[in-house]
Simulated scan of single mutants.
Amino acid sequence: MSPSIIRIAAAVLIDKHGQTLLVRKRGTLAFMQPGGKIDAGEQPVEALARELREELNLHIDPAQAVYLGQFSGPAANEPGFTVQADMFQLHIDVAVTPAAEIEEIRWIDPMGDGGLPLAPLSRDQILPLYRASLIGA
């Protein structure tokens, strides 16, 4: 794998109102789906569960995570790098709180951008995918 590729696992977290959660890491501007880097030897869903626990104090059952596919786009916070994301979808009905490197969280209506600066992958691929699933529902 190219050293300019960052492999992550991330989630479209959906609350009971159909809103989706975006996070902003400390010292950055762009909001994105929660998740993070996949460690060597770790399965993507395991990385997702670990990252959600570390970043949001959210404990998930990996078996409940629905795999959406693998998506790639420019890294929001690391110029010259590409993010390769294994994306999952999860419905949650518990409160989440920012922890670790997460500075801010926002629940947004997926039909818009919440007036937030979005990471390229979120803006160009992930939110449009979620919107399309709502329109087709």
Rank of each mutant, 00 (worst) to 15 (best):
M111G: 15
E101Q: 11
P34L: 02
A49K: 07
D39R: 15
D86Y: 07
K16P: 02
Q89S: 04
L21S: 01
I126F: 05
W107M: 02
A100D: 13
M32Y: 03
G41D: 07
A40K: 12
M111I: 15
E101G: 07
K25P: 11
G41S: 11
E51H: 13
D109I: 08
E55L: 13
Q19V: 03
G115I: 02
G69D: 04
Q19D: 09
Q125L: 14
D86H: 08
I102H: 03
A11D: 03
A85D: 10
P74A: 09
E54W: 06
L127Y: 13
Q33L: 10
E104L: 10
D39E: 15
I108D: 06
G27V: 05
K25Q: 15
E101P: 07
L13R: 03
A11V: 09
E101Y: 08
D39L: 15
V12G: 05
V66S: 05
L52W: 01
Y67A: 13
Y67R: 11
V23M: 00
L21P: 01
D86Q: 05
E54S: 11
R26N: 15
G114R: 08
I8R: 13
K37N: 14
I105L: 15
G80P: 01
Y130W: 05
L56K: 04
Q70V: 11
R24I: 00
P79M: 03
I92Q: 01
P117F: 09
I14N: 00
A65K: 03
G114V: 09
R24G: 00
L121E: 04
I105N: 09
L90P: 02
T82S: 06
E54H: 12
L21R: 01
A95N: 07
I14S: 05
G27E: 06
A9V: 06
L127M: 15
Q64N: 07
G136S: 15
L129W: 12
W107P: 00
I108T: 11
G112W: 10
E104D: 14
G136W: 11
V45K: 15
A76D: 02
D113P: 10
G80F: 00
Q19K: 11
E42P: 02
E54K: 10
R53T: 10
G18S: 06
H17P: 01
A99E: 13
D61M: 10
L116C: 09
A75S: 14
L127C: 14
V96H: 03
S4M: 07
V12A: 10
A85T: 09
D93M: 00
I14V: 13
G80Y: 00
I8A: 12
Y67D: 12
Q33H: 03
L127P: 14
P3R: 12
A119N: 05
H59R: 13
I8Y: 10
H91Q: 03
Q33W: 05
H17I: 04
E103R: 12
E103Y: 10
A11E: 05
R24M: 01
E103M: 08
S4C: 04
S4F: 04
G73Q: 07
F71P: 00
P3G: 10
A11C: 08
P34W: 00
G80Q: 02
R106W: 04
I105R: 12
